[in-house]
């Protein structure tokens, strides 16, 4: 953390001018067609590199631009790994399942530019059972999950174990950075995942053992109390959440899972917004990455809404708050 971020923050301030604000989001929502949306985005510098002009290619290209820009600003990118661990564990999940069913689905892997571990290394480690190729904290869970899948064939259990390991990794590495924004990101990621899991487990009638295996520890939730509440009934979950900092989320959880996801993303954006005025720390860089991810997520929702002819209202209620 001894790196000096004055130069980097000044560059981020300039780049923040290119972020999409709520007026651009309104224009996108008001656009009559997908093509019109693409034109509006192109006016704001969004484009896909190469010949592939699909929405996913454009979004991937925008994400790549963000990471290239951040790469120019800091020598040590590892501090931002907290944003990439979810992709590593997704690839681990894909590799284990692929190895179990003995078929290949190259499209399920997230590109190595968005990961801390090359997906090919993960695949090799799982197929050849050479777990030492994996990072230390991934080895045990990879071995355990492979064994569980082989013995039980339970894909959901495999998902739960890996998701929990990913959440613990995100939470711990966020804390380890010592930066408030990254710590908050780790905390909110774990807490929102735990709340979603508790609600889903309650609706599908899962037992307390399942909940204890699925919930990852964090500071803002008592996972034992949450598991007990989820084992009881839905009102018990709301009653527990009412005593936590997530009381505001209850109406959104009741509305729909997507409304709760939107609430979680908006909460992160509101928490990082003070970074707009921070002149010299890593905070504005982390906030810029999160703002860009949030922007990409909202654009994806709008574009898929336009492509699938969804009503403006249903798309609008899914679009996130903007950072600027």
């Amino acid at each position: 953390m001894s790196e000096n971020y004055i130069y980097a923050v000044a560059r981020v301030r300039c780049k923040e001018l290119t972020l999409l604000d709520s007026s651009v989001m309104d224009s996108l929502l008001a656009a009559g067609s997908y093509e019109e949306c693409v034109r509006i985005l192109a006016d704001h510098g969004w484009s896909s590199e190469g010949e592939n002009s699909s929405p996913e290619a454009m979004l991937a290209s925008e994400r790549e631009k963000t990471w290239d820009f951040i790469g120019e600003l800091t020598k040590d990118m590892s501090i931002f790994d907290v944003f990439l661990y979810a992709n590593d564990y997704h690839n681990l999940k894909a590799a284990i399942k692929e190895s179990f069913v003995h078929t290949e689905h190259p499209g399920v892997y997230i590109d190595k530019s968005q990961c801390t571990v090359d997906p090919e290394v993960i695949k090799k480690a799982i197929v050849e059972k050479e777990y030492d190729l994996l990072p230390e904290d991934m080895r045990q869970i990879a071995q355990e999950t492979t064994d569980v899948l082989l013995h039980t064939g339970d894909g959901q259990l495999c998902d739960i174990l890996i998701d929990r390991a990913a959440l613990i990794k995100i939470y711990e590495s966020g804390k380890k950075t010592g930066n408030d924004i990254l710590k908050l990101y780790g905390e909110l990621t774990v807490a929102s995942a735990d709340i979603k899991t508790a609600i889903r487990a309650n609706k599908t009638g899962k037992d307390i053992k399942f909940l204890e295996r699925a919930l990852a520890p964090c500071d803002s939730l008592d996972i034992k109390a949450l598991a007990a509440a989820a084992n009881d009934d839905e009102d018990a979950i709301y009653s527990y959440l009412d005593r936590t900092v997530y009381a505001d989320a209850i109406p959104e959880i009741k509305k729909s899972p997507s409304a709760f996801e939107r609430w979680c993303d908006n909460r992160i954006i509101r928490s990082i917004r003070p970074q707009i005025h921070n002149p010299e720390s890593i905070g504005p860089l982390a906030a810029f990455i999160l703002a860009r991810e949030n922007e990409i997520k909202s654009v994806r929702i709008i574009l898929s809404g336009k492509l699938n002819h969804l009503s403006d209202e249903s798309v609008r209620e899914r679009v996130r708050e903007m950072y600027v």
Partner: peptide
Amino acid sequence: GRAGQAAAGLVTDD
């Protein structure tokens, strides 16, 4: 020196 770093950052993009 400190202000120069911020100035360089600004001038890089603008």
